[in-house]
Computed example of a mutant assay.
Amino acid sequence: MTSTDRGDQGDGADTDARPHPREMFIRLLFDTVRQDPFPSGTQLDLIEESIPAQMVPEYVELLIQKSREGCFPSTDVLRRIQRMSAGGGAAPRC
């Protein structure tokens, strides 16, 4: 049986279709943050420590949505939006 008989291309096409483990981790945290009315600062820190650049706009959009849900948006979330939209990434940790 050849690789084409099994349905794979032999060029890595099957592995390219799967998301990177880091992206799967970020998406798991995104789902948790979406469902939580008050997202955990620890979870937001984990996202910001791991997020690839191409996912930052989606993350900022998620934070903006969370800020619009209540009458008084979290100052922490607003600062995260400001920092991430400016391209600064996560805040330095002590």
Score class of each variant (00 low, 15 high):
M1L: 13
T2G: 07
T2P: 00
R6M: 11
R6S: 06
D8E: 05
G10I: 09
D11C: 09
D11I: 08
G12C: 09
G12N: 06
G12A: 10
A13F: 15
A13M: 06
T15W: 15
D16T: 00
D16L: 09
D16K: 12
A17C: 00
R18I: 01
R18S: 01
R18C: 00
P19L: 15
H20M: 08
H20S: 09
H20F: 15
P21L: 10
P21A: 10
P21D: 05
R22D: 06
R22E: 03
E23G: 00
E23R: 13
E23T: 08
M24D: 02
M24K: 06
L28S: 04
L28R: 13
L29M: 08
L29S: 02
L29N: 04
F30W: 06
F30G: 00
R34Q: 10
R34P: 03
R34W: 13
P37I: 07
P37N: 07
F38T: 02
F38P: 01
S40R: 11
S40L: 05
G41Y: 13
T42Y: 15
T42M: 13
T42N: 10
L44V: 08
L44E: 06
D45L: 12
D45Y: 14
D45C: 02
L46R: 14
I47T: 07
I51R: 05
P52F: 12
Q54P: 01
M55A: 15
V56L: 04
V56E: 08
P57K: 14
E58A: 15
E58L: 08
Y59F: 08
Y59Q: 01
E61F: 12
L62N: 03
L62V: 03
I64A: 05
Q65C: 03
Q65M: 09
K66R: 14
K66F: 11
S67K: 08
R68Y: 15
E69C: 02
F72V: 09
S74N: 09
S74I: 11
D76W: 14
D76I: 11
V77P: 02
V77E: 10
L78T: 00
L78S: 04
L78M: 10
R80I: 09
R80P: 00
I81G: 08
Q82D: 04
R83I: 05
R83E: 05
M84I: 04
M84G: 03
S85I: 09
A86G: 05
G87E: 04
P92I: 06
R93E: 07
C94Y: 14
